[in-house]
Design a protein around this nucleic acid. Structure first.
Lengths: 340, 340
DNA sequence: TTGTAAGCGTTATCAT
DNA sequence: ATGATAACGCTTACAA
């Protein structure tokens, strides 16, 4: 059925060892043998049994991703982009990506433990870091190979790729301030997430520095989805003194906010300004188009993938700490006069 | 470093064989030995080396997904949902999902060949089938285990999960006809895709049966994304006698169509009706909300995953051909008066 | 230049 | 009830 080294060896009247060496282009095999072996292998349609190779090499050439129970959903566009970046990068290095889901388990460390112990993967890609992330702590303790998309609050040294949310938030608040807004709200996700934490911190600081309204009611936490954004916005609109501008943690939330505003009969971009984070494709085709802080999701994934490949193959990581600068994309949702 | 059977065997003064049997709860091992072995294993933090198990068992317990070069993108929401369904179902059966990308290669069969030959996976999940799909042909020829999300035009017998696009399209055209539309356009994806083919066939037939305008100009092919929908709609709006209703192959395309209409100064839901396929979350929060043919993406993935698990574990597939009925979700984009 | 033998960690077969 | 032995397919000392 399936072709093995033994089959080739029999055919060319050599030992399995010689065949193996010939296929690996070892110097100590005669050119004739090498050519013969390669020819025969090709003809027989030989493909090495990677499982056997892995057992021998004690490497799985596989990167694991355990989807955390607190999201992101595979159906979130920006996460999909990041995933594509990782898949492309590690596939280019001959590695596989193994996806599993944490399900409803609150503590994911046993899953990581299990996959390390059973030598299922060479390293992990960790997404959606939390401020004090037990996964990161565990992986560092174990000396496991991993790359995170996101930082933690502790001053631990581990390879990561992240976005400078503080910078992004600052430029967004400044933009809204310049447009004359004094009362800016922040519709945010679960603040245990490091990204959200940074956004929030920077929001509070920027608002204070610019002397804007710093009413704590203006910060509303919700689920990181359109529905979460929608509901949070409803809360905001029901306040005695509603905000004139709303920033959301993600574009999906921002689209929910826009939706809620429009359902209130408000015109987004004039009656109320709305902005998000990510720059998903929909941001550009929404009506009005959505002002946002663009994050290079694909590139982040790609970088993480390259770092993981280096790690898995024992090469040093050239830049273990990458902080990408996001850029403010001004569109109609904060400035309806804008002609795109 | 890592604990193996040998370590346990040494510790409990038994052979590796006995330890293995004890851990597998074989009947022919004494209760004392069994308990001792299990206790020791737990204490040492033993986890079986899956690579070794796989080499021995000649099974990888892994399902492969090779992302076709013609999409879908990982960032498409409906595909993400389906992927989640597969991951959940497969993980529940103790299997892994291996993702790789076909890159720019026009013919993917070598990739399948390579993964079969190297025994990397036990089976494949095939997505986005084409009318005459070389991947399906190849996998059938090879006798490989796989489940497809989508059918082909040939009368080949293979396990699949698909949606009854024809039915969905018919109900959509009927709905628009009842609203008084005589000139309905279809903004479609690459018609080599079986799903698109079925939609198109049903569109033409429904239009003809209902006696509506069957101008071939009303069918415009474009990229299956918002931009593709946007551009195709621009073509439609520039026609001498524009359509009064536009159906798109996917919700993303439909959102692009809505965008283009709005940029033309048209009011979607009154000046022009727009409808899509999928029912992604954004369909419900778009403005106006989007009429669509709902497809149970997560459920499709889940079913495919269950079938794959059965296949991989040598169990028979109870229902190898599943055709799910989509349902028409009427919203404002075809009927602005509608209060959701 | 080639072959022999051992080993990766596990499971299955056959003795005892 | 337990253990020796072989096997899964491959790589790599070491020997010839």
């Amino acid at each position: 059925m399936t072709v093995t080294l033994k089959d080739i060896a029999r055919q060319v009247n050599r030992s399995v060892t010689t065949v193996s060496r010939a296929l690996h282009d070892c110097a100590d095999v005669s050119p004739e043998t090498r050519d013969l072996v390669k020819y025969t292998a090709a003809q027989l349609g030989y493909a090495p049994n990677v499982v056997a190779q892995r057992l021998q090499k004690q490497r799985t050439e596989t990167i694991g991703l355990i989807l955390p129970h607190h999201g992101p959903r595979l159906s979130d566009p920006s996460f999909g982009d990041m995933l594509t970046g990782v898949v492309d990068a590690i596939a280019g290095a001959g590695l596989d990506l193994l996806i599993s889901s944490a399900g409803d388990v609150p503590d994911e460390t046993p899953l990581y433990r299990q996959r390390i112990g059973s030598r299922r993967v060479d390293g992990f890609w960790v997404v959606r870091t939390r401020c004090h992330d037990p996964r990161i702590r565990y992986l560092i303790e174990q000396g496991a190979a991993f790359v995170a998309c996101g930082r933690v609050m502790e001053a631990w040294d581990f390879p990561y790729v992240d976005v400078d949310y503080k910078h992004g938030m600052r430029s967004l608040v400044q933009h809204l301030c310049q447009l004359g807004h004094r009362r800016i709200a922040f519709v945010t996700g679960w603040s245990d997430l490091t990204s959200v934490h940074h956004q929030r911190q920077s929001f509070v600081q920027s608002v204070s520095e610019l002397g804007l309204d710093d009413d704590p009611e203006l910060i509303v936490e919700g689920e990181m989805s359109q529905h979460g954004g929608y509901r949070a916005a409803q809360v905001l609109f029901s306040q005695r003194q509603p905000a004139t501008a709303i920033i959301a943690s993600t574009d999906l939330m921002a689209l929910g906010v826009m939706s809620a505003a429009q359902d209130q009969g408000l015109e987004v971009g004039s009656d109320v300004a709305v902005a998000g984070f990510d720059d998903i494709p929909l941001a550009e085709t929404a009506h009005p188009t959505l002002t946002t802080v663009r994050q290079p999701a694909y590139q982040m994934g790609q970088l993480a993938g390259q770092m993981l490949a280096a790690l898995a193959q024992g090469r040093p990581i050239t830049r273990p700490h990458v902080l990408l600068e996001p850029s403010l994309i001004i569109r109609q949702s904060t400035n309806l006069d804008l002609w795109l």
